[in-house]
Design a protein around this nucleic acid. Sequence first.
DNA 1: CAAAGCATGTAAGCAGTTACATGATTGT
DNA 2: ACAATCATGTAACTGCTTACATGCTTTG
Lengths: 204, 204
Amino acid sequence: MSIRYAILGFLSWKPHTGYELKKVFADALSFHWSGNNNQIYGTLVDLHKAEAVTIEVQQQEKLPARKVYTITAKGRAELRDWTCSDPELPVQRSMALTQLAWAEGLSEAEFDGILSAYARKLGDQVLMYRETLARNRAAPRRSPREELIWRSLDEHAVAFYERELEWAESLRTAAAALGPGDAEREALRLRGREGGLYDSNYHE
Amino acid sequence: MSIRYAILGFLSWKPHTGYELKKVFADALSFHWSGNNNQIYGTLVDLHKAEAVTIEVQQQEKLPARKVYTITAKGRAELRDWTCSDPELPVQRSMALTQLAWAEGLSEAEFDGILSAYARKLGDQVLMYRETLARNRAAPRRSPREELIWRSLDEHAVAFYERELEWAESLRTAAAALGPGDAEREALRLRGREGGLYDSNYHE
DNA sequence: CAAAGCATGTAAGCAGTTACATGATTGT
DNA sequence: ACAATCATGTAACTGCTTACATGCTTTG
């Protein structure tokens, strides 16, 4: 899925300029795009080519001209078709989880270090999201259903980070409870016989 | 983050061929990459250029030759540095959530349709994951800590889809409880005055 | 006088995808 | 006969990112 339909969606709510769309994406909690220029201005050109939007250039006295994009009937039809199309499964991309997967070489302290750094970042993110939610942001509220959906999406976005945080903390506790970590065990092993209790036991 | 470190990670566990890595990524629950040829074979070439891996070509009688990749000390060092580096926040990309955000134009039945299609897909995915988990797959178990981490990552991956499923079902229930949907309200509005109760109330 | 806001756009590149290409062997 | 497994690789493309480029106005 591309940003095309997200932009078309915002335009279906009300006309926007490219600059406004940038801010909308930067503020949004439930839309994962960064809102960089290349994508937004480029997609707007594409949408115009496809006759999904019209452009109105508004000259301003002291500020640069604004290009206000308005959705057309064709654009609304395209958006509607897309919203009805078969939804894909969501994907979670996480650098931290891959780091943890390959943490075997790290000491107990280093391992706890990544987990706590991750937990701290997640905690900050949750706080930031909670603040943003408290500042009742601009969002379409054209019907009780739409209001419900947007509130639900916002809460879902925060909950995602909260669950991640809980998971990180629980793994941290569980790892701490394991007792002597790798570094310590390694020292013990070197003083004992080679080929420890816990070597690779891969089987096809 | 690129697939580079995920590949390096699997090689740090034990040597693999490109073909084996493909299967490993296809089976994995906690690694989000598709494991397509271009990425795997390309990255292996890069890793070899960087002297992070060595190649051993094994000729076979009846089958094509295998290139077995083994991690070097340099490769281990690179992986170790990366695992200690500052973790990034995870990102959730979801087509379905964007569809729901712009579902205003849809009837109650159509809206329920996307939600139920989404829920069904999520349910299937959860079942598939549970099955995969039951077939105790090949995974590194070099220490109790590593075993704990991998089990925890697997459970986390399933839980992600389970939470998503719960959320979808709860939104579905809440939307159904709202009473007369858009289509019905629209009909009522057309018979009444223009400018309904729930028009856009955007404020900067 | 520096920083932030307004407003448009472009260049270069990374990461990832599907689909194509080859070709022998084994199983249904 | 058709499909799957083994095993390597390439081509073309999409989506998204950071950073650059311009220039005027308002705020601290």
